[in-house]
Design a protein around this nucleic acid. Sequence first.
DNA 1: CTCATGTCACGTACACCGTACGTATCGATG
DNA 2: CATCGATACGTACGGTGTACGTGACATGAG
Lengths: 218, 218
Amino acid sequence: MASEQKSPLTQKRIVHAALAVADRDGIHSISMRTLATALDAGTMSLYNHIRNKDELIDAMVEDIAATIERPEPGADWKQGVRQIAVSTRTVLHRHPWAVEVWSARIPGPQRWTLMEAILDQLASAGLPDDLTDLGLHAVLNHVLGHTRQELAAVRSNPGTHVQDLAAELDAERFPHVIDHLRYHAEDHPTHDSFLFVLDLILDRLDGMARRHGTGTAH
Amino acid sequence: MASEQKSPLTQKRIVHAALAVADRDGIHSISMRTLATALDAGTMSLYNHIRNKDELIDAMVEDIAATIERPEPGADWKQGVRQIAVSTRTVLHRHPWAVEVWSARIPGPQRWTLMEAILDQLASAGLPDDLTDLGLHAVLNHVLGHTRQELAAVRSNPGTHVQDLAAELDAERFPHVIDHLRYHAEDHPTHDSFLFVLDLILDRLDGMARRHGTGTAH
DNA sequence: CTCATGTCACGTACACCGTACGTATCGATG
DNA sequence: CATCGATACGTACGGTGTACGTGACATGAG
């Protein structure tokens, strides 16, 4: 009657279980004990497949980084970078906990590959070294920073609603803020500040690349 | 011989002590026990002045938010917003731990005031409601997001150096990344992507405000 | 002066955390 | 059969945030 073979623990099984928990309840509700219980295993068994909790989280981040879309080779560089940027944002929205740890640790292969892809696109634009550097940081910081901010705004305190905040504020000191919060409470078809800034950056880089390429600077 | 009067515990004294610890060792090395020890007090005594650890951190953030420079009234709106943005970044660089918790919780009075100031400047630019909304998010997300990213890059793993990272990477898979890391190891006079993007945003908003103001939209 | 009341410092205790370490089980190989 | 390596597991340690009860003390009322 050995019909109840438990499928053996693997790094992949652990990471996937952790992803499921984090997507549902946030990264902070992962503890080695609860995770092991969810996997129907002893707490310390996990350590046969994972060095420690930090590396588990690294592995989780790498796992979702692998799902970010890359442009096919030969694509227009601006479209290519834009695709990576938008896809990164989409993926991070799907895993809201991830952006909090994304930049806190050294990248793994998947994230290096992503960075390589962006640099590759920028290089094909013909930007000089210093502007490639500028462009990479502008794009990366925008994507991760902006996404983090919008996620924090949504999720910062689960129970509270925007209109409750407005009600607690002193109308004399914060008239504009109250207007702004009310504006958000009604849901206007709002401009997307993520794409707004992203395209500002890309268009400007494009302009600088053309100026540099034709040698007619200034 | 009552010369050893211990100065009484106050919220202010606790917050300042916590700030000193956080600035030196990071937010994670603050625990209620170590903090109390640093103040030469019992752990639970702190709770007479502070509801819980989260509110202590809120108070710390508010304390440093108060040090951000605001424009004097009547200033040019673009310069005004720029000043707040730059000063916010400077202050966050002075307290690197703060940006990690900045957006994670609901703002207090100081941060509402800051938001009010930005909205006030944008309003004086004559932008319509939807563009004010766009501008606020573009600016706020840029300032906090970008600053968080640059701080994370610097501080993510204290021991490691850039050139060590480059040495570990596969030269065939990550040629651009390795170049980029090497480029950073030599210290070039690098463009400031923070100001680059900030000015892109402000100039564009300015352009839209003018178009809107003169009624000659497209 | 006496006593009540409120404020604040402190110690203890609890539940939970990550994980070092020792041990037991089991399949593969000699 | 004996051995060995990989894996699962239990126990235990030092850390965390904080609920709760106690006791010192200052202040004000009678």
